[in-house]
Design a protein around this nucleic acid. Structure first.
Lengths: 145, 145
DNA sequence: CAGTATCCAGCTAGATACTG
DNA sequence: CAGTATCTAGCTGGATACTG
């Protein structure tokens, strides 16, 4: 069988590879939070609008345009797309108030807040270790050049 | 000035946007760990070769080909590229033993292990909450269809 | 106000073949 | 064994214009 062997092997490898991915739940989580707009929206709705690490800001609901203004440079497409995805996963809730014109607010759910706590921990680690990482990177680049 | 206005506005928006990104250190960290091969390599070198959560497996050095075999489906290009990036950031160390043929092993550094601890926490959260997320997602899809 | 629709460019990952 | 080199295809995100 000269024609199938390669393809079969590839398919098999793909299957195993997917299996390996599947057993790593942190992968699934990363798939959700590794999107840059997700992190920023989480920050915004979680109340981290400044660079502070006081950790005491309250989560609050924000309007679509409010988010758009805060996440400077986000296109309506990405903002909507990201918010929809987060809503789909039960991390944010969307509330429509039938004023004229219509008012829509987004807010972290309980689950969303627990995820936000995680990203806060990430931020914590980052603030402690990223300098080290960046320093090592710079050193490595200098040594290699 | 009819021609510059738009571009200037865009550039300004980009700058502000980058500033907002910069104040969020967790973004930088995510930039590093959100790569799927990074997570898998961290898992592998951290000793999480199975889906177990016993948390007691020791980190160990692994050879290039060993990693390639474990991360089924990874291309040599991606494997090398990812390992180099991790080495550059001081998260893994690369050791060459001048045997014939040459033997190369990779190992988590102290910093790498601390990052691996983080991904373990992520895995923890994922195992607790991902079902909830996926259930909500399924429910949302069913309601929307 | 809060989106939707469309188009396009850039980057990245995968396949593949080759080498010290 | 442990990579490097090259090419290409697909997806993602950004710009932009339009609408209930």
């Amino acid at each position: 069988m000269p024609t199938t062997t390669k393809a079969v092997q590839t398919a098999r490898a793909k299957a195993e590879y997917n299996a390996f991915l599947a057993v790593c739940p942190s992968r699934q989580l990363l798939e959700r939070i590794s999107d840059k707009w997700v992190v920023l929206i989480l920050c915004a709705l979680g109340g981290e609008t400044s660079g502070e690490v006081d950790g005491s800001r309250a989560a609050r609901a924000m309007r679509y345009s409010e988010l758009a203004r805060l996440l400077t440079g986000v296109s309506p497409k990405m903002l909507t797309q990201t918010l929809r995805a987060l809503e789909r996963d039960g991390l944010v809730s969307r509330a429509v108030t039938p004023t004229v014109p219509v008012t829509v607010t987004y807010e972290l759910t309980e689950l969303g807040r627990s995820l936000h706590d995680l990203t806060r921990n990430l931020r914590q680690w980052a603030q402690v270790h990223m300098d080290e990482v960046l320093a090592h990177r710079a050193g490595h680049d200098a040594a290699t050049s």
